[in-house]
Design a protein around this nucleic acid. Structure first.
Lengths: 420, 420
DNA sequence: GCACTTATTTCAAGCGTTAATTTAACGTGC
DNA sequence: GCACGTTAAATTAACGCTTGAAATAAGTGC
């Protein structure tokens, strides 16, 4: 098969596409007047007027006051109607299932969370997710028909084939057909993806990645992951497992990683690995009971006084810098964003050292094009990131949603009747 | 600025796009009948007919016999006319400038090459390139007006900004405005890119990458590079320097690389580095005079008898496997293609070991999705790869070329005159 | 109230796609 | 040898979209 560049398109795709361009502009840089939209999108004033009038008629866009012009008729400002529909984001985490409902502007409207003390039995998780969807709808007072879709972030590889399959070694999930299982309990559109990719998208839309087209969001928690954004959207590769940065080799023949290989980045910079290295350096004194978060914070404090702790952190910064340099050399991004709870913790103290180490290991030219920054959304943005998936779909289709499709069919049926 | 997904488009872009879809299909999987095109592209029979009749009228597409149908009117087979226009590819290499002229089917029609004994003085190189263009046109008997464009592959980073700038440390070039300099001597459309990326594209179009949408072409010569293909096209990053795989760190604190950093992949698997490691292992006996090619071939032969040579190669395979595993983990490609003169030499003997090392260092899931293969085009495909750039542009614009643009303008001017 | 400025809407013209219809080209069977 | 059925390609009518120009709306300043 050859490399076909675009899909074929019809005259209706054209409108959908232009509607998407307008809506996207309005969503990320709104409010704006029709005239401004015309200037920003390159569309003629007439087309913008048409598209906008459709969007207003369907309730997607509303007016938002007006703004004086230089003496003439004032601009009518337009913006996406946050209350048009809702979206739901789900974070299937290590310890709990979090379900959150947002309006289109990503304002949190309702949330519930369920503990997962009893492990990650698939049926139980599915049940909690479905219960959560009903619960947040009830709490926020919206009917399921007003929900654009549900985004679900899980840990592990999410394969988007004929059927969505989740491979989550952490949960002991092997090729779980999560979408099919959920489908039995709800009719809402489902968007299942890796949680790290979701958080990366949240950071790109609303955090440190705003305005970037090429970036990598690095996520350091107990383990290490990354979300790669190329041309403004998350890169997934051929089976959606792209971005496994944590298991790239940075030291051939080095430390054993929990994945079985040697010298993985995760074996040096993940919270678990950092603490382990610290314990080894202190000759095996092990502190059980304290959470990883607390232990890492303690290590950071200890490092203020120099000594072994400082050495471990320096080495961590070196490895992290080298890993980031690899991303810079391979992807030539505009920005590297360091996130995840451990990433934020480490980054807040070590960013300068990490950046210096990256400079040492990266080529000058791409390094000079890249800024290395801390994430802005905190470590709990998975559900929100997941909720961006239905919004993304909504924007990309130019604001079409199930109800308006029904309208169209009804309309056509009516017409046919007229002509008969 | 927000993340705008597509460009705005007009009804004419629509035709251009569909024309491109048809042409692309015909170029890579032709010949085909109109009906088959309709089935393959999803376009209606009418549209295919319209598009094809335009393409035939402009000479881009020609009929190629017919094929019986099941009893009815036979299929008329269509194909891209190889002789419609020509393209030129230029390889500005370490030792010489190669200029080659191809027809649209990438059949070589003429070639010249100039030695670069006197170094890489910019003016001299520019002069040779321009002379080469004239020479191959003369040799093939085509006028410059029949050349779609010139693709030029250079070593180093090619920055596509307001002006194309070439940063080539190997040549001592720093921000050379190559396009502007060439522009003084020719009016042909110029497409300047990194030679490794060009070779990668050649391998994708006509070599081991055919039919792949996500792949990485790894190029090992004296140094090490890579060309990353995502969604069927070369990934460049924000300033076109993506793919610097050779300088990713695989051994923090390891061998010193010629780039100044420590532990780069290139310091282990580039031909220069492999030979250097071999010399070190043999305690400094150095053989001057022999070319790198000959020396590496000799090393491979020596390794058949085991001993130090075999050890060096084993280590090389391990490092190369780890480097490839990193690509697999980060990009989740369908295929990794090993090319470059040293890559082909090493790969022909070590592919099994390299693959085994990659399996050890990569995660199981993405590794299982990836095949690791040798390149098929040999090490001298840079000029051919460069020549694919104007062809790519031609296909992507649906077969529009300078002359037909002139026609269109004339046509429009005529119309305006009529109506006035 | 009037001139002026600027934003938005309206409308004809030009194109492009689709789906249905017509025409063309071929094999088969009488 | 000729009508018939089958399949491919060309033609045509209907409809939708964008554009650019002209008209209209909505303000300001005098």
């Amino acid at each position: 098969m050859g490399v076909v560049p675009h899909q074929r398109s019809t005259v209706r795709d054209l409108r959908r596409g232009n509607s998407a361009v307008v809506l996207w502009q309005l969503y990320f840089d709104g409010p704006a007047s029709r005239q401004e939209l015309s200037r920003l999108t390159g569309l003629s004033a007439g087309t913008v007027g048409n598209v906008v009038s459709d969007l207003i008629a369907s309730g997607v866009v509303i007016t938002a006051g007006s703004m004086d012009s230089d003496g003439g008729r004032p601009h009518v400002l337009l913006r996406v109607n946050p209350g048009y529909r809702s979206v739901i984001g789900v974070d299937v985490g290590e310890t709990c299932v979090r379900v959150e409902l947002f309006d289109l502007a990503m304002t949190l409207r309702a949330k519930v969370s369920y503990e997962l003390a009893g492990g990650h039995d698939v049926e139980f998780v599915v049940d909690r997710v479905l219960a959560g969807i009903k619960a947040v709808c009830a709490e926020a007072g919206v009917s399921e028909g007003d929900v654009l879709g549900v985004g679900i972030g899980v840990s592990g590889v999410v394969e988007h084939g004929a059927e969505v399959l989740v491979h989550g070694q952490t949960f002991g999930w092997d090729a779980v057909p999560l979408e099919r299982l959920l489908r039995a309990g709800t009719d809402l559109p489902l968007h299942i993806d890796n949680g790290a990719k979701n958080m990366g998208q949240a950071e790109m839309w609303f955090g440190a990645g705003r305005g970037c087209r090429h970036a990598v969001v690095v996520l350091i928690g107990s383990g290490v992951g990354a979300s790669i954004i190329t041309h403004g959207s998350t890169y997934r590769g051929v089976t959606s497992s792209a971005g496994e940065w944590g298991h790239t080799t940075v030291h051939v023949g080095g430390r054993r990683c929990r994945c079985g290989a040697r010298g993985c980045l995760e074996a040096y910079v993940g919270a678990e690995a950092v603490l382990e290295r610290y314990q080894e350096a202190r000759r095996g004194r092990r502190r059980r009971g304290a959470s990883e978060e607390a232990a890492l914070a303690e290590l950071l404090d200890a490092a203020e006084r120099g000594g072994v702790a400082a050495e471990v952190l320096d080495e961590t910064a070196t490895y992290l810098g080298a890993g980031i340099a690899n991303l810079i050399n391979l992807f030539n991004p505009e920005r590297i964003i360091v996130g995840g709870w451990a990433g934020l913790l480490l980054g807040s103290r070590l960013l300068a050292k990490i950046t210096a180490a990256a400079a040492e290991h990266a080529l000058d030219h791409p390094f000079a094009q890249t800024s290395i920054e801390l994430g802005r959304l905190g470590p709990d943005a998975v559900a929100m990131g997941a909720a961006t998936l239905p919004v993304e779909h909504f924007l990309a289709t130019g604001g079409a949603s199930a109800p308006s499709d029904r309208d169209r069919i009804a309309h056509r049926a009516g017409k046919r009747h007229d002509s008969a």
